[in-house]
Design a binder for these strands. Structure first.
Lengths: 333, 333
DNA sequence: ATCAATTATGATATCGGTGTCAAAAAGTAA
DNA sequence: TTACTTTTTGACACCGATATCATAATTGAT
């Protein structure tokens, strides 16, 4: 590991003072043409690499926006990340991504890591973080929350109403004449499992239908759980004419199980998902689902943080879950 | 933005010297029970947040591994990221993710950003970076390349042989009796477009089949291009009994087009993809595809970098594209 | 209780940039 | 040319943590 080239060496090489070299290299002043050329040449010659740690320390801040996600591999968060990346694209800030999966010795977790980097702002996507902590952070730096609405900072949250969205989707199936609608639920600890189930329940109640416990299946938001849920239903011979999976991944699994069971979609069974992942429109048949505007929320969050950083106030827009009707759903048989 | 609490304030509050406070907080020495308690209490009381910029500057390095990907949203790179995350999970290092999409004012791009952060090591996933530059970096810090094999640093590359993998897949279809195999190609500028096409070509030649230009369709690795390619084929009435899409995303699109055209898979048309994305086993019917061990390569790269960091030599293992036969392919009609 | 061995602590220089401020140089007007 | 403004430059302290090394406190053995 060769010794790092510092600004002092550049200065000496170019025959100027360190401050001058720094100013020119960081672009905060043009400098006289001759000086400028000399510094630039020296930097190139010695292969100068700015040390961001030094710069950040000196400036007291870094040009980064922390982004905290529970899982970088989850397609929904990938959508959000895409939006954030887009939103930050033309700014001087770059996203510093932290995943809750990282546990870095002792008590230093991903959040502390981002904070330790003195990120200029923070975008937190649905992680079970103590709201008290989020509140305190929000007092210090621009913070926006995506996905979840947390009490003390409601006006810093970008989210859709999960209960309402699930209600709409269920209502849609009921209106198509479905009476026995299987529901594949998320894991109990996940925060939007309950509201989505509530929406399903409310739609049934409103239509005067009784909730059938045997039609509510436990899932975990992964493909396989959707698959097994439907397999189980078929095995037990429980009748149903529609399946509402509380996320698209489980809908994919359910789709495969229906296929293997010889149940035609949508002729015999209607299938509805939740999220509208990019691949959902390529499912066979294309999946009817509730679109969550992940990309838009990410984009909006990024712009919002930049706006707050520039001192302007930011009021998060409202987001809505939108039922996208494709071909996996139809009239009840 | 409240003033940041520094180690000096902790020291004063706890009645010890800054060095002692630092040592205890960074865990490099336990300290006497009483002192330790005092420092920890002071840190908690004042809500101390370590300043990583200062730490990195002082230590001359950061505990991070740079990861450079062309696109954080591409499912294949997400797999790689998952592997890297896993590989780094139990280490003190964390991944610092850079996407080629980021352009940060002037000449500072994502690579410079990572280097500027003085990452301990670097994992680069198929990006068109000048090999000369990569070579120079590899002299300084542990660097591994995923996906592509670059001349001057062959022994730092983790990749499969794309030509061979495409050959195998094509060969498989030929052995099933297929004679008119449509090929959906990637974008011309993408580096593995050519080798994959070469593999297809070689398999045909070896079987004494002539390559039919009308069966080689231009794609761009996105779903829609696979869709349109097949639509086009059908519209023109060009006969074919199999489709080999050079990535899974395009295979999804092709699948939908086949569905819409009333062509049964695999009864009338066999479909083969390339990548084996997580959803491919849930396609209807489950997709036969060439599995690229993205997760394993990411995992291996992470471990390799850590190993190199600890001073041991690292020889990347060989990786192979593996044909995963599922139900989307079968005997030629 | 004494002396050696061990461990904890404090003073201070240092990492590599940046901001400040005063001095110097260049530009402008008379 | 002189006087005055504007721009560029250099000296130097500073950001917040750490490493070093000398000193102090503690422990253990005798």
């Amino acid at each position: 590991m060769a010794k790092q080239v510092t600004i002092y060496e550049i200065a000496k090489e170019a025959g100027v003072s360190p401050s001058t070299a720094a100013r020119i290299l960081s672009g905060r002043s043009q400098g006289r043409a001759k000086t400028r050329a000399a510094v630039l040449a020296a930097a190139k010659r010695l292969n100068y690499q700015l040390n961001l740690a030094a710069q950040n320390l000196s400036r007291g801040k870094s040009m980064s926006i922390g982004v905290l996600v529970p899982d970088i591999a989850d397609p929904f968060f990938v959508e959000i990340l895409r939006g954030i990346e887009k939103g930050l694209h033309d700014s001087a800030y770059f996203p510093l991504i932290g995943s809750m999966h990282w546990r870095l010795g002792e008590a230093r977790n991903a959040l502390d890591l981002l904070l330790g980097h003195r990120v200029g702002g923070l975008i937190v996507a649905t992680t079970h973080l103590p709201s008290e902590r989020l509140y305190r952070i929000a007092q210090e730096i621009p913070l926006l929350l995506i996905g979840e609405v947390v009490e003390p900072i409601q006006n810093r949250c970008l989210a859709i109403d999960n209960e309402e969205a699930a209600y709409q989707a269920t209502r849609y199936l009921i209106d198509l004449g479905h009476r026995r609608i299987a529901y594949i639920s998320g894991p109990p600890l996940h925060w939007h499992t309950a509201p989505r189930l509530d929406g399903y329940r409310r739609a049934l109640e409103e239509a005067g239908l009784e909730l059938q416990p045997e039609l509510v299946l436990a899932g975990n938001y992964e493909e396989s759980s959707g698959y097994h849920a439907v397999k189980e239903l078929v095995r037990k011979g429980i009748p149903f004419s529609a399946v509402f999976a509380s996320n698209d991944a489980m809908a994919y699994g359910a789709r495969l199980a229906l296929f293997e069971s010889g149940l035609a979609v949508p002729e015999q069974v209607s299938l509805v998902g939740f999220d509208d992942l990019p691949w959902s429109s390529y499912l066979i048949p294309p999946l009817t689902t509730v679109r969550q505007p992940g990309y838009e929320m990410g984009l909006s969050a990024a712009r919002g943080v930049l706006q707050m950083l520039s001192g302007q106030p930011f009021q998060p827009p409202r987001f809505y879950g939108e039922l996208v009707v494709r071909n996996s759903s139809g009239q009840a048989p």
